[in-house]
Amino acid sequence: MKAIKITLVLLILLSGLLISGCLQQANDVVETSAETPTVKSTVQGTAAEAETRTITDMDGVVWTIPKEVKSVAANGAGNQIVFMVGGADKLVGTASVVQQNEMFVKIYPRITEVETIFVTGQDVNFEELVKLDPDVIIGNLDDAEEYGLVDLDIRNQSPEDIKTEVLLVGDLFGEEEYKKAEEFCNYYDGNLNYVTERTKNLTDEEKVKVFVAGADILSTEGIGSITTSWIENAGGINVAAEAGVKERGTISMEDLIAQNPDIIITRDSKTREELLTNDQYQDISAVKTGKIYVNPKGVYLWGVRSAETALQTLWSAKMIHPELFEDLDMNEETRKFYSTFYYYELSEEELDSILNPQ
């Protein structure tokens, strides 16, 4: 009997220990569940990573950006490319030169409401840019990373550069935008092939000497520039490059006169008029023959660093070698480009303002 009582006591004590252990385990579960926010934080981090992606700019720098880019700031010609691929509604910062472009404003009026970040060239309103905190900047800014901003470095000194930039910008926004970028690249390649097929067999003697004036008569672009690229494709020789000017620079008046270009292309009619009336330039062949042409200007100036360089490829060929491109209708080509890439039908007046700017 006594043995039975001892056994019962032992069973009770054992049960107590088991219950205590179970309670302790229950407490452990509660404590563990109290740490769930940390676990969720890790999950959120993993989810956040799923909401980001990497993109490599044209300098080979790899950036982490949101999976869905919702805001972009762009300088200069970058705005035209963003607009062309279909990302303009995500522009939160732009350049004053773009907001002053009548055709850009006419086709996309909202551009005047976007914050002006790039005032002139690389003069940047960093204070406002930091406030905007765009997902991506297309601006080639030296100091952007110091402010914790993603700034894609781009180059646009050749057709390959332009196409790569367009694809990069298209990739920022999504699949449809990337398809539009690819469509543009195919179009540009078609223009390049069309032109070079007719100019590739020209001898050096048959090539035309061309000078392109920039913001003023002697500012120009030379070796390694997009200007040299489209001149050479069109069967010409860039006299600024021949004189040793590198990329964007200045040619001396003496060198310009000595190079004696057959054709001069200017950005506006004011520069053209100055060339025609200034006695210092009267011995230049292009001035004597009146072969001074004002470069077309649409949503951006055709000849410099925007995707409208695809049209410049055609126009310059017709200006430099009209005998090879009698069948090329620039009215038709310009209408087609604006309809295809901007979904905009040009009026006769608008077409004239693009091809014959003042």
Rank of each mutant, 00 (worst) to 15 (best):
V150C: 10
E182A: 12
N156K: 03
S158Q: 00
T116Q: 05
F126M: 13
E176V: 02
F104A: 13
T164V: 01
L141S: 02
K131P: 08
E176S: 10
R155G: 04
Y147M: 06
V130Y: 14
Q100N: 15
Q122W: 06
L168Y: 09
I111G: 06
Q99E: 04
L141K: 01
P134S: 00
E165K: 12
V105E: 13
Q122L: 15
V105S: 12
N156H: 04
I111S: 01
V169W: 09
E183L: 10
E165D: 00
G121N: 04
E115G: 00
Y147P: 14
D142H: 05
N140L: 06
L167N: 07
D171L: 04
N125S: 04
V130Q: 13
V166G: 11
I137C: 14
E160A: 12
L167D: 04
E115W: 06
N101L: 03
E145H: 02
D151E: 05
E176K: 11
Y178M: 10
L172Y: 04
N140W: 05
E113D: 08
E160C: 02
P159W: 05
V169L: 15
T164K: 15
Q99G: 03
M103N: 07
V114S: 03
F126V: 02
K163G: 02
T164A: 15
T116Y: 00
E177N: 03
L172A: 07
T120A: 09
P134D: 00
V136H: 14
F118I: 00
